[in-house]
Write a protein that binds this DNA or RNA. Structure first.
Lengths: 238, 238
DNA sequence: CTGTCTATCTATAAATC
DNA sequence: TGATTTATAGATAGACA
């Protein structure tokens, strides 16, 4: 946007394109930061440069990252390379999730659904496993909350005590803030994580069984069903 | 950025803030579109306006969405409301995933890890379930690929046939492109999805058992372990 | 390749409709 | 409240170091 008016087409020249990317990337980050600050909203941008295995992400808050920092701070220099693919997939996962989210949003949101993710995980005894553990737990947490949300709406005014279990216990410095007027959320993730393991300290709240098993015909996927190395996108489960 | 220089602070005035948000949101979308077109990269922005339950997402490609469109095209007007929380959680999940991804990237990626997500899911027989099914399958797919990647690197030159299972079968119009020089990826997601269900068509490649069970002390999480309604972030699994 | 400079284009704050 | 206009702050293409 200077000497010449930009024509909105792919920049064939390799170095020019790269330079443009660098400049505009910075500009985009700034814009995202500005809009989130000025308007007090959550905003983020993701830029994936194929040549670079590191996806460029600018979330508006860094809570979980700080938590992970704490874990990682112990051992900094360890084996490498393997994590790279992990990141690559995480990145791809983010893009995919966004696409799906957009899709779900753009059209009518009309159907109720219930889902649950069951996981197990090979802890090889290093510090990074705990980070991954958090990731997986996070997914489980999301689906748990989702189930609770659905259950709560269905049984509104019937079992109000289920509403509060989603509020995370914040050991230190955390803030609980009401979000959208009905969902308690952990806003400040800058929590101190005790080094001791407290896996067994997790709560076992009652799952809405009718949500898990379904009221009209169960559909349960086995590992064989979901462990799909190819053509995984072409599935249709009625 | 006009009459007055912008001071980067929260705009207290309600209508002004809203107006600014509207303008800058459009500007941000445009910027994201431009950078992705000009530089040929994947980029997206997410803007979450608390007052609005719909998270604003602009992915650069719409492949999966098209796939989902195909599914959704059947029934457009159905029950509502429930999906909303689903979206809310998806949005939150995206943010969290981004944070974690950034964290993993920003520092050293040094440890190998293996993970697996096992899921089951209550299909209530409506069209939207298939969309969610895809979402879950997608997660499973990611972890599956990750396991394969790790296994492949460990057994490099030993079991080369495992490398190819990650290349998705593209029914039509898809492109397989080498990414980062070693990972085959589905680039063009605008695939035609057959309407027939092919759940049972998924492959059952061999899982690296040593990855799943671990070589140095297994750590298996049960549903009770991961179903953590509170304090889920404070777990440390050695 | 990364940083700086500058002319110019673009985004947008403020005013107005 | 949302669209349009206007003047100016901000972003950046091209050139250069």
């Amino acid at each position: 946007m200077a000497r010449k008016k930009v024509d909105l087409t792919y920049i064939a020249n390799d170095s020019k394109r790269k330079a443009t990317l660098r400049k505009r990337k910075n500009g985009l980050i700034k814009k995202v930061d500005e809009i989130s600050i000025l308007c007090g909203i959550e905003a983020c941008a993701i830029i994936y440069v194929p040549e670079n295995p590191t996806p460029e992400v600018w979330p508006s808050d860094w809570g979980v990252q700080n938590v992970l920092s704490r874990f990682r701070g112990v051992s900094e220099l360890e084996q490498s390379k393997k994590m790279l693919s992990q990141e690559s997939f995480l990145r791809h996962r983010i893009i995919k999730a966004q696409e799906q989210l957009k899709k779900l949003k753009a059209e009518n949101r009309k159907k109720e659904m219930t889902l649950n993710i069951y996981q197990y995980f090979n802890a090889s005894g290093n510090i990074f496993d705990s980070a991954n553990m958090i990731y997986l737990n996070d997914i489980a947490h999301m689906t748990t909350q989702n189930l609770q949300e659905i259950d709560r709406k269905i049984n509104r005014d019937q079992q109000p005590q289920d509403q509060e279990v989603v509020a995370p216990v914040v050991p230190e410095g955390g803030e609980i803030m009401a979000q959208q007027g009905e969902q308690a959320q952990l806003v400040n993730d800058h929590v101190q994580v005790p080094e001791a393991n407290n896996v067994n300290a997790v709560g076992n709240q009652d799952w809405p069984v009718e949500m898990i098993n379904g009221a009209d015909g169960d559909q349960m996927l086995t590992m064989d069903d979901v462990n799909l190395p190819s053509g995984w996108l072409n599935q249709y489960i009625p």
